[in-house]
Design a protein around this nucleic acid. Structure first.
Lengths: 182, 182
DNA sequence: AAATCCATGTAAACGGTTACATGATTTG
DNA sequence: CAAATCATGTAACCGTTTACATGGATTT
């Protein structure tokens, strides 16, 4: 899946591993995340598969960087993925619910404290999505010369998902915390 | 995390690997999932760590099964996990949003078809949560002798999360599909 | 007679995280 | 002068998936 995401980014324009990490971990945090080390390793594999090529590029202010470019085969692989239909649900894992599931044996107060702690974290996440993310996305859209209605629409749709998710999580916390108090 | 889940199940009562798989993949699908092979391997590791012990148990109708029991160390490990506070957000990955993110270069019709397909899958998932899951959970609560208010409360809370999640996803699909039509 | 359920496991591969290692440049 | 940012990479490990292998009992 990371491979697909990197293919997608390079389809816009050549980028270095570091730049792709910046991109994924700022503009896409609401639905994906990757370690730099994983990105470098994946790019190396993709190069050996002929999906990308790389060359070192000198820079004035910073050290040289290795810039990756999609090959024809890479572009084809991306298009194939993009044009295939996915017919199954993603399985999703929600670690914190595993803990909630076993809260029956924790004291009510302890449970309430942990729930409040999580609620605060999600509130902060929602604030971040609402305040900082729209600008970050706009910046990236400009930087990649993708500032047309269609690209903006789908990027914003994913962010809208993040916002709706966090809003829903907060509603859930409020509901069960209220019920727990009784 | 699977380790923690298995510890939690065995804390209720001794179970075989097969039974734990049944449990996780019917009662807990909305927040966790594990392959049988992974469960068997994990149990083996847990046994070598002294968290569980196992013995073969003969059965009348079916072949013998290996039943696992929590050791004192296992119970202690579970309690420690249960009583610790988690102070960071789970990172969550939503593979289908990776695809949506790159929909800018897919035709609108193709995008609409794929979105409709996903919407249907989520609708079915929601129906399942509403129709079959409550009974499944009630059965399991009885089977494990946990049919008290507190356990039921937290189990139902996780299911409530699943329902609210799917409802939110459907709202999201409806919103963006409506906007896409214009 | 075929399919499904019960039941246990091993092996290989994959995807991802954590730790380690290095070092220049810019900002406070 | 210290900290943060830019920048690249390797190695070990861990958790998970997929494929393989087996076989009795029950249901259709």
């Amino acid at each position: 899946m990371l491979k697909y995401a990197l293919l997608g980014l390079l389809h816009y324009q050549p980028l270095s591993g570091y730049e792709m990490e910046q991109f994924i971990n700022t503009t896409n945090t609401h639905f994906w995340h990757a370690q730099l080390s994983q990105i470098y390793r994946t790019l190396k594999i993709m190069e050996s598969e002929g999906l990308v090529t790389s060359r070192m590029e000198a820079q004035e202010q910073a050290r040289s960087k290795r810039v990756y470019t999609l090959t024809e085969a890479g572009e084809a692989a991306f298009q194939e993925e993009l044009n295939s239909y996915q017919t199954e649900l993603d399985i999703n894992k929600v670690p914190f619910l595993v803990r909630v599931f076993f809260f029956g044996d924790v004291g009510r107060e302890r449970a309430a404290t942990q729930l409040q702690l999580w609620r605060d974290l999600h509130q902060r996440q929602l604030d971040h999505y609402r305040e900082a993310m729209p600008d970050r996305m706009a910046e990236q859209l400009e930087r990649l010369n993708l500032d047309d209605e269609t690209h903006r629409f789908f990027w914003e749709a994913t962010l809208r998902f993040g916002v709706m998710y966090e809003e829903m999580v907060l509603r859930w916390f409020d509901e069960i915390m209220r019920e727990l108090e009784r």
